[in-house]
Design a protein around this nucleic acid. Sequence first.
DNA 1: GTGTAGAAGGAAAATCTTTCTGTTGCAAGT
DNA 2: ACTTGCAACAGAAAGATTTTCCTTCTACAC
Lengths: 156, 156
Amino acid sequence: MTRSFEPDATDRAILRLIQKDAALSLADIAKEVGLTPTPCWKRIRKMEQEGVITGRVVLLDPEKVGLGVSVFVAIETGDHSAPWIEAFATTVAKMPEIVECWRLGGDVDYLLRVVVPDMQAFDSFYRRLTAQVPSLRKVTSRFAMERVKSTTALPI
Amino acid sequence: MTRSFEPDATDRAILRLIQKDAALSLADIAKEVGLTPTPCWKRIRKMEQEGVITGRVVLLDPEKVGLGVSVFVAIETGDHSAPWIEAFATTVAKMPEIVECWRLGGDVDYLLRVVVPDMQAFDSFYRRLTAQVPSLRKVTSRFAMERVKSTTALPI
DNA sequence: GTGTAGAAGGAAAATCTTTCTGTTGCAAGT
DNA sequence: ACTTGCAACAGAAAGATTTTCCTTCTACAC
């Protein structure tokens, strides 16, 4: 796979800035990277069109909105067929409590992060998950005690 | 812990929208939630001041910027003292490849997600991590094969 | 050398958004 | 019924984004 996009030092500088704070005005970004607003805007638009920038979002404090409990769920499946994988992905997509789902190599097949208000809500989620997904061989839930670090900024 | 902020249905509707797309104009948001731009803006500003909204960021496609490899690192430590915990948190904060770090309850003490360009870069990271952090009892790395789901939008 | 094409930057104007002002309407409490 | 407080609205001002057009620089051909 050859990369279609090769950001130069200025592109990277812009990305580093707006990965941290997308509310910066073009004037501010431009000043930081040593350009005027126009070429800066052109670079950002190009990166949006090429799909390098996939979106702009606001981040919320989970505690403040009553969603302070994160649980990691490690799943080992007994069925590795394509239809099972596809059905599982569909189920995952439909459950908003699942904010992350990764298919892994090795002993664990899937790792989920689930966000809920409290343990009771997690229990309710857990029942729904295990009821809907067949062929689960082993499901291990680990509760997060502390969010030591969590960033959306990639180390570019 | 009593929640200082109680969002009403309109606040939640606004948050659901801008969690998905923060580039929406106030006019668009207002139309969606059935308000005019001004009260809408006041609600958003209030939520920013109260810390409910912690930031606005752009999200990047990891593949497109050459950071397509995510690795989950599960850590069991032999030292559970406060100074060790603090030193570990400091080290984690300083390593930009670590995009997430959670302290867990149960058998695994910490779970990290590490983002790197390739396996070689992961090896380099791994060496640096194990060299800098003392008293690691067990470190298990699992490579992500597929990002089935990954969202910053909380199920509010 | 000279000419040309393409890429990247910049200035200024047009357009659109955000932010602020003052005002109105509604609901709860007296 | 009257006040009080909150949340909404309309419209204006301030500010940001987006467009247009122009200049510069480099690479390549003649």
